[in-house]
Design a protein around this nucleic acid. Structure first.
Length: 285
DNA sequence: AAAACAGGCAACCGCTGGCCC
DNA sequence: TGGGCCAGCGGTTGCCTGTTT
């Protein structure tokens, strides 16, 4: 892999052959052992003292996104997805800030989730992922389905932001709360209060939830498709492909999307292995 | 069986702001 | 005050792997 090796200036006077590209097991071991014995400190120092031919930036990234012991790997739970959707609706692409509320998850992972799953969904519908239209669709379909999943798997735990103003303006409908679904209150994960400052108080209330129950007239919660099609806790399959019902929603609200776009979305949906024709027809009635 | 394609994700890049001298 | 160094952040790239043709 010639490209992974590049000559770079390390300091003004010192030129070091710095490695780039994928990390080897040996490099991982060197970095992990060094940090466990000496703590993190300055990353350029860490890189040098650990005997790595990497720059400090690369070491920091590798440690924070991969090697750190409390990193959680695997698919995001419905709770985590819901939280990401909600926090992103408030803060936008503030990945590191969002990551503070998802213990063990990195900003990189959340960013990747957003780009690969959420934006993909928006593309299917031919709408901007940061538009009001998309928020509307997420609120109407994705969120209820995630909530349904959480109800089905109440053992799932997760951490949520402290709701400082205590106005119960949470991401969930009035009848529910984070507490009730997870048996775990919103607690700060790191010990510090991650960003709920005065300026963030407004952000601690949900964008989605106050009118979450405003599901389009043709579809109540009982008709929400069995999400087991898309999410199987046991085998790590994850919701995040298509949002069942969204296409129908746009078909019925032609001012939101053109027929052409909907048709494209439908075509794609029918080709998705998570769907079958019967499932799709549930929403056409 | 092999080539083409697509999705997921690890890693890099470039910018910004804080700190120190 | 300005310059250098550094960590942190969001955006982007490119590799790997699984799927489709």
């Amino acid at each position: 892999m010639e490209n992974s090796m590049k000559k770079k200036t390390f300091t003004e006077s010192e030129e070091v052959e710095l490695r780039r590209g994928p990390w080897t097991l040996e490099e991982d071991t060197l970095l992990t052992n060094y940090i466990l014995q000496n703590s993190e400190g300055r990353w350029n120092v860490v890189a040098k003292c650990a005997g790595l031919k990497r720059n400090g930036k690369s070491c920091r990234l590798r440690w924070l996104n991969y090697l750190k012991p409390d990193i959680r790997r695997g698919n995001l739970s419905p709770q985590e997805q819901l939280l990401i959707l909600d926090l992103h609706s408030k803060w936008g692409n503030r990945w590191s800030k969002i990551a503070q509320y998802l213990p063990g998850r990195t900003d990189n992972e959340i960013k990747n989730y957003w780009r690969t799953r959420v934006q993909k969904q928006a593309r299917q519908l031919n709408i901007e992922s940061n538009s009001d239209r998309f928020f509307d669709a997420v609120r109407s379909f994705w969120v209820p389905r995630l909530i349904e999943k959480m109800e089905q798997n109440p053992s799932n735990t997760y951490c949520c932001p402290q709701n400082n103003n205590n106005n119960n303006n949470s991401l969930l409908p009035p009848s529910q709360s984070y507490d009730s679904m997870s048996k775990q209150t919103y607690t700060d994960i790191s010990g510090k209060n991650p960003g709920i400052s005065n300026t963030d108080v407004s952000a601690s209330s949900s964008t989605f939830m106050p009118d979450l129950m405003t599901v389009p007239h043709f579809m109540d919660h009982n008709t929400i498709i069995d999400s087991s099609m898309c999410y199987h806790e046991g085998n790590d399959q994850e919701l995040g492909g298509y949002i069942p019902g969204m296409e129908e929603y746009y078909m019925r609200n032609s001012d939101i999307s053109t027929d052409c776009h909907v048709a494209e979305a439908y075509e794609d949906v029918t080709q998705d292995p998570m769907w079958n024709v019967d499932d799709i027809w549930q929403f056409r009635g």
